[in-house]
Amino acid sequence: MSAVAAEWRKLLSLPSALVAIGLTLVAMPALGTSTARRLAAQLDAGGDGVLGTVTTLTVGFELVPFAVLGPVVLGVVIIGSEYTRGSKDSGGGRQITTSLTAVPGRGRLLLAKAVVLAGVSAALAVVVIPATIWLAQTALGEHGHTWDALGPRVAGAVVYWMLMPLIALAVTVVTRSGIVPMVFFVVNSSFVSVTHLLTRVTPLAAYLPDMAGTRMFTAQGPVHGGLVMLAWTAGLLAVAALVFTRRDA
């Protein structure tokens, strides 16, 4: 328990983590609302023809795989910050030596980090995702939907937001630096989705964790997609635990 309490403090005293949390809280609801407003105006003016591949049911949800970057950044920095070298002036030490002398059980330390990360991500998700969807659907006005239709998708999106950061944590344990995972996750969620492009090359890419996880909030086999993503998360965490326990600090 004390290890979890310490990890909680560590994460919430990192400026980069606070920035990620703050941006997520503000950006996603704001973007969701503005998209929905624009769409509502087009629908009022020109009917269903403006929708294309989007439906009024997915408004707001298209931001879920993008705004998950906030929790993903938390997953990267919760490990990456341990391996950041101090300045040459200060001797170039890394925090991981302090963390492991305080909590020498590798499994215990990693579990504490995963618990804190999942908790913070879940808290962020249950606030931001329903708020965004509510704001977006409200902005759609008469084109909006009821929670009967939206609820399961919201639940799926919350699960997605809990699993993605855990995957980021596991990858960062292996790389021992936040830089490579950070670049990959930022690029993949915002500029060019490598995993999405892969789905055009091979149907197997649909089984990649983020692609499968997306199905939890697009209602295209949410249970199956969720289980695939869960299996990835568990597998990657197991690899991370194995590496972390066997490696010298």
Binding site: G86, G93, Q95, T97, T101, A102
Partner: peptide
């Protein structure tokens, strides 16, 4: 223990560093 290099993350205050350490034990 004190190892070469200090082992504190640069973006936290000294007090915040000691606080999480205290909590952990």
């Amino acid at each position: 223990s004190l190892l070469d290099g200090g082992g504190a993350h640069g973006s936290r205050s000294g007090r915040a560093h000691l606080t999480w350490l205290a909590v952990s034990n």
